[in-house]
Write a protein that binds this DNA or RNA. Structure first.
Length: 892
RNA sequence: GCGCGGUUAGCUCAGUGGUAGAGCACCUGCCUGACACGCAGGUGGUCACAGGUUCGAACCCUGUACCGCGCACCA
C-alpha cells in the first residue's frame, strides 16, 4: 500500500475517483443482470438550472440510496435527466435576447427562429447542472440521460395526448382560467400561489334604476372592473334586498355610456354572503371565477375590460382604457369619488393569487384552453390510502388524499412556444379537428394548434417515458416500477400525484414504491433560500472549500426526516472536520505497519477489542435500520458518534497499550481488529462519503485482488456490512462481562482526569497515580489505565496502603484512585470538590428514596423497576459513605 | 374556516412512560508519539402554558398561547 499523505486533499481525489468510476462503468445499469433491481428516476432539474443546496440535499439522498443498494447486491439504475421547463426557460431566453438588444419581443423573431434560439441556449447552458451533479458524486447512469424534449420523449408525450383525446379525457373549452399577464399564458391552479395583500376595500353606491333616489352600497377591492359588471347580486334570503331582486341598478362606469346602456339587473344568488360588506356583490363574469359562475346561473353576458397583458381595454371607457390594471384601480376610485358615489375606503387585507413564475397577481380570464379530466384517479388514490405505496414522512399521504379527493380538471395548454406543441390540427375551411401524431395527409389545408403543453404534462410520464415506453424495453421490464422517489413536498400535486395516475393509466402499475419527501432548505434564520436575499450559498463554492464529502455529510447530518433543513456553513465545516478525522485515523493505522486485514485470534482479544467490536455491531445495526427507514440524519449521527467518540476517542487510545507493548502477537491481533473495524466503518460511510472512503479503501489495502464487481477494486461494490450477530459474538467471545469491564476502566480514566483537572495539572503532563483496586485486576488493566491517564506510572497497591493526608482521591467502579502530589495539593479545593460531589449524590439519593418510600410506587410499579431503584439506592448510599471517608482522610 | 408541523441548553436539534442528551457556541488547560479541522476538562435546561390520565409524564389525553406550512376562501 502506498503511504497516505499527511492531509486529506479532496479536490484531486474526488476527480480521480469519479473518472475511475465512470471509466469502469460502475454506474451503468444492466437490465440483463440476475441481481434484484433497484431503481430511482431523478426529479429532472430545469435544463437551464444551476445546482442549489436543495439539489444537494435531494441528490445526496438519492445517491446514498443508490450506493447502499449496490452494496446490498442490487442491480441499480439511477436514471438522470433534465426538464425543458417551459415558462422558466422561455422567459430566461426571451429576457436575455431582449437584454442583448436582439429583439423587443419574441414576435420579432417568430416561432421557428425563436425556438432555434432556445435550442442554442439549451445546448450552451443545458449541461451545467449535470456537470455539477457529477462534482457532488452522484452515481447516475449517465448513458441513459434523458431530456423531456428529446425526440422520442416528445413522441411519447404526443401519443399520450392522442390517447387521452381518444379516450375522451381531453377537451377544449372556453373557461375561466388563471392568466399570467406577464408570461401571457394560462396557468394551472397549482401554479397560482395565494399571497396576503394589503389593499383597500372600496364601498360605492349605485342607484336603483326603477326607483331613483334609492341606492345600494357595494363593497369591492377592484373598482377598475366596474365597467365589466353585468349584474349585482344579493343573497335570496337577505330580507334587506329581496324586494329589489329583479329590478336594476345603474352601473356608474363607463360614465360616458348612455344611462340606459348601463342598467344591470339585481339577481339573487346563494353564493352571496350577507354578512360580508354590505351584502351586495358586484358581478363581473369576465374577471372573477365566482362571478363567472353566477353569470352562468343567471344568463349574464361577460364584458372583458382587460387586455391579455393586464392593461384596460376600450370597453373600460374613457379615463381607464390604456391604463395598467393597478393604475386603473386608483383612477376608477377617483372617478367614483368625483361623481359622489364613493362612500368608503378602508384598508383591507385579502389573499390574491400570484403567478408562481412571474410573481405578479394573476387575472382570472375567460379563454379557450385544453383541459384534462385526470385518468386512473381511483387507483392512484387507493394505492396511497391503502399503504401499498409508502410516503415518508407518512403525513404527506393525507395531503395527497385530500387533493385527490377534490381533483379539478387540469388546464394543460400554455400560450408559449417552448414545449410540446399540441398535436391537434384544425381544417382551415371546415374547422374540423384532427388529433394525431401527424398532420393529415393534405397538410396544407390544416393548421396546427398554436399552444404547447404544460411542462408537467411531460414530466408526469418521467418514470416510464425515460425507460423507452411505449416500447417494452428490457429496461422497463427490469426497472419499472421504480423503488424510491426522492422529491420535495412542494411538488406533490404538480408531479408526484400526476405520475402516480400516469403510471396506472399506461403501465397499469404504480410508478414507484416509496416516496421520500425532503425538507426545504432554509438559511440559519429559517428564511427560504432566495437569490434576492443573497442567502443562498453556491454549493460549488462549498465543494471547493470543504470537499464534496464534507458538503454531503454536513447536509445529511442536519436533515432529519420530515423537517426543514436550516443550512449553516458550520455543518459543512463539521463534515470537513469529520473527513479529516477519518483520514487521520486511517493514517494512524497505516503508521503501525503490519499486514493488512490479518486474521483475528479470539484468544488474544483484550476487553477493549471486544468492547469496540460490540460497539461496531451496534453501529451496523443502528445505521442499517435508520437507512431502511429513511432516517438519514440518524444514520449519519450514529456513524459520527461511533467513529469519533467510540473508535477514536476510546479504542484508538486504549489499543496503544498493545501497540506500544512488546508482545508482537497481541500487537498483530490489535491491528487485525483495527482493520476489521475500519474496513466495516469505511463501508458504512461509503454512501455518505463516497470519495474519501474509496481513497482510504485503497490506501489501507482493503481492496484486495478481486475484480471490481466483487468488491476488489472499488468500495462501491463491497458488500454492505450485516450485523455481526450471535455466531460472531460466540466465536470471538464477545459478552457483557468484557464490555462492562472496559466501561468500568473508562470510568476510572474519567475519574482520574477529573483529579488532574482539580489539581490543575495540564493534560500533557505525565504524573504518577496510585490505584487501590477492590478486586483483582488483569495485567491488561494497568497498562491501559496508564496510557489513557497519561500517567508516568500507575502504582497498584493493596488494602494496607494508606494515602498521605490530603491526597486527592476518586471512587471508581474498580477501586480507589489516588493522585499523590506531595505539597502540591490545595486541600481546600479538594475538599470543595468532594463536597460538591456529596451534594450531587445526596440529591440523587433523595430522589430515589422519595420514590421508594412511596407505597403507591412500590405497589404500582413493575417489580423490575422497583428493584432497579433499590439497587440505585444502595449504590448511591455506598458512594456517599465512601465520599464521607474521603473527606475524613483529607484532614484539614 | 379546515388540516398539518413545531415549541427541550445561547443556537440547531435528538430524546414515545422510569437517573434530561448531541453538535455548535462559550469558559479552563494543553501542539501529549494520527489528527489544533485536534485532545482533555467544564459552565449551561422548573423540557411553551394550564388541566387530566398514571405509582410515576419532556413523552399519553384535553385545552390555551405563540411560530411555520398547506388547502379553501367573503366581493
Amino acid at each position: 500500500m502506498s503511504e497516505l499523505p499527511k492531509t486529506y486533499e479532496p479536490q484531486a481525489i474526488e476527480e480521480k475517483w469519479y473518472a475511475q468510476w465512470l471509466q469502469d462503468g460502475c454506474f451503468t445499469a444492466d437490465p440483463q443482470s440476475s441481481k434484484p433491481a433497484y431503481s430511482i428516476v431523478i426529479p429532472p432539474p430545469n435544463v437551464t438550472g444551476v445546482l442549489t443546496l436543495g439539489h444537494v440535499l435531494n441528490n445526496t439522498i438519492q445517491d446514498i440510496l443508490a450506493r447502499r443498494a449496490r452494496m446490498l447486491g442490487k442491480e441499480v439504475l439511477w436514471l438522470p435527466g433534465t426538464d425543458h421547463a417551459g415558462i422558466a426557460t422561455q422567459t430566461v431566453v426571451e429576457r436575455t435576447l431582449k437584454k442583448q438588444g436582439e429583439i423587443k419581443h419574441r414576435d420579432d423573431l417568430g416561432r421557428d427562429k425563436f425556438l432555434e434560439k432556445v435550442w442554442e441556449w439549451k445546448d450552451k447552458h443545458g449541461g451545467i447542472i449535470i456537470q455539477q451533479l457529477k462534482k457532488l458524486g452522484a452515481s447516475c447512469d449517465w448513458d441513459r440521460e434523458r431530456f423531456t424534449m428529446d425526440e422520442d420523449y416528445s413522441r411519447c408525450v404526443q401519443s399520450i395526448f392522442v390517447d387521452l383525446y381518444e379516450k375522451g379525457h381531453i377537451y377544449r373549452g372556453r373557461r375561466m382560467v388563471n392568466w399570467c399577464p406577464v408570461s401571457l399564458t394560462a396557468l394551472s391552479d397549482e401554479e397560482v400561489i395565494m399571497k396576503q395583500q394589503n389593499g383597500v376595500l372600496y364601498q360605492f353606491r349605485v342607484e336603483v334604476a326603477e326607483s331613483p333616489g334609492t341606492f345600494l352600497s357595494i363593497a369591492t377591492t377592484r373598482p377598475e372592473t366596474i365597467p365589466g359588471d353585468t349584474a349585482v347580486a344579493v343573497n335570496p334570503k337577505d330580507s334587506r334586498y329581496t324586494h329589489l331582486v329583479g329590478k336594476h341598478v345603474v352601473r356608474p362606469l363607463p360614465a360616458e355610456m348612455p344611462h340606459a346602456d348601463r342598467w344591470i339587473p339585481i339577481v339573487a344568488d346563494e353564493h352571496v354572503d350577507f354578512e360580508f360588506g354590505t351584502g351586495v356583490l358586484k358581478v363581473t363574469p369576465a374577471h372573477d371565477k365566482a362571478d363567472f359562475e353566477i353569470g352562468q346561473r343567471h344568463g349574464l353576458v361577460a364584458i372583458d375590460v382587460l387586455r391579455a397583458n393586464g392593461v384596460m381595454n376600450e370597453q373600460a371607457g374613457h379615463g381607464l382604457a390604456g391604463l395598467d390594471r393597478f393604475e386603473a384601480r386608483k383612477v376608477a376610485a377617483e372617478m367614483l369619488r368625483e361623481m359622489g358615489a364613493l362612500e368608503k375606503e378602508d384598508p383591507y387585507q385579502n389573499n390574491v393569487g400570484y403567478s408562481e413564475r412571474a410573481d405578479v397577481p394573476i387575472e382570472p380570464r375567460l379563454s379557450e384552453q385544453w383541459f384534462l379530466k385526470y385518468p386512473s384517479k381511483e387507483a392512484a388514490r387507493d394505492v396511497v390510502a391503502d399503504g401499498k405505496m409508502k410516503f415518508y414522512p407518512e403525513r404527506w399521504a393525507k395531503v395527497y388524499d385530500h387533493w385527490m379527493e377534490n381533483l379539478q380538471d387540469w388546464c394543460i395548454s400554455r400560450q408559449l412556444w417552448w414545449g410540446h406543441r399540441i398535436p391537434v390540427w384544425y381544417h382551415r375551411e371546415s374547422g374540423e379537428v384532427h388529433c394525431g401524431l401527424h398532420a393529415p395527409a393534405d397538410a396544407e389545408n390544416w393548421k396546427q394548434d398554436n399552444d404547447v403543453l404544460d411542462t408537467w404534462f411531460s414530466s408526469w410520464l418521467w418514470p416510464f417515458a425515460t425507460m423507452g415506453w411505449p416500447e417494452k424495453t428490457e429496461t422497463l421490464k427490469k426497472f419499472y416500477p421504480t423503488t424510491d422517489l426522492v422529491t420535495g413536498p412542494d411538488i406533490i400535486f404538480f408531479w408526484v400525484a400526476r405520475m402516480i395516475m400516469a403510471g396506472y393509466e399506461w403501465m397499469g402499475e404504480m410508478p414507484f414504491k416509496n416516496v421520500y419527501f425532503t425538507g426545504i432548505i432554509r438559511d440559519k434564520q429559517g428564511r427560504k433560500m432566495s437569490k434576492s436575499l443573497g442567502n443562498s450559498p453556491d454549493p460549488l463554492d462549498l465543494i471547493a472549500k470543504f470537499g464534496a464529502d464534507a458538503l454531503r455529510f454536513g447536509v445529511m447530518r442536519s436533515a432529519p426526516l420530515g423537517q426543514d433543513v436550516l443550512f449553516d456553513e458550520k455543518n459543512v465545516e463539521l463534515g470537513r472536520n469529520f473527513c479529516t478525522k477519518l483520514w487521520n485515523a486511517a493514517r494512524f493505522r497505516q503508521m503501525q505497519g503490519g499486514e493488512s486485514e490479518g486474521e483475528i485470534a479470539p484468544a488474544l482479544l483484550s476487553s477493549d477489542d471486544k468492547w469496540i467490536l460490540l460497539k461496531l455491531d451496534g453501529a451496523i445495526e443502528e445505521v442499517s435500520r435508520a437507512l431502511d427507514e429513511y432516517r438519514f440524519s440518524d444514520a449519519a449521527q450514529a456513524l459520527y458518534r461511533f467513529f469519533w467518540s467510540e473508535f477514536c476517542d476510546w479504542y484508538l487510545e486504549a489499543c496503544k497499550a498493545a501497540l506500544y507493548g512488546s508482545d508482537e502477537a497481541r500487537k498483530t491481533n490489535t491491528l487485525a481488529v483495527m482493520d476489521f473495524v475500519l474496513g466495516h466503518a469505511l463501508r458504512l460511510f461509503h454512501p455518505f462519503l463516497p470519495f474519501i472512503t474509496e481513497e482510504l479503501w485503497h490506501g489501507l489495502g482493503y481492496n484486495g485482488d478481486l475484480p471490481a464487481q466483487q468488491g476488489g477494486r472499488t468500495i462501491m461494490f463491497a458488500r454492505w456490512p450485516g450485523v455481526l450477530g450471535k455466531d460472531f459474538r460466540t466465536h470471538y467471545g464477545l459478552d457483557a462481562t468484557d464490555e462492562a469491564l472496559a466501561n468500568a476502566r473508562y470510568e476510572v480514566v474519567n475519574q482520574g482526569r477529573g483529579l488532574r483537572r482539580d489539581a490543575n495539572i495540564a493534560s500533557n503532563k505525565k504524573v504518577k497515580f496510585v490505584f487501590r483496586p477492590t478486586s483483582p485486576l488483569t495485567a491488561h488493566d494497568p497498562e491501559v489505565l496508564k496510557i489513557l491517564l497519561n500517567a508516568e506510572a500507575l502504582e497498584i497497591v493493596d488494602a494496607t496502603w494508606a494515602p498521605a493526608k490530603g491526597t486527592p482521591t476518586a471512587l471508581t467502579p474498580l477501586g480507589e484512585l489516588f493522585l499523590p502530589l506531595e505539597g502540591l495539593i490545595d486541600v481546600g479545593a479538594e475538599r470543595e470538590r468532594i463536597q460538591k460531589e456529596i451534594a450531587k449524590v445526596e440529591q440523587e439519593l433523595l430522589t430515589v428514596r422519595r420514590k421508594l418510600s412511596s407505597d403507591s410506587f412500590v405497589a404500582g410499579a413493575p417489580a423490575a423497576v422497583v428493584d432497579e431503584h433499590r439497587h440505585r439506592q444502595t449504590a448511591w448510599q455506598d458512594k456517599l459513605a465512601q465520599l464521607g471517608r474521603m473527606l475524613e482522610t483529607l484532614g484539614s
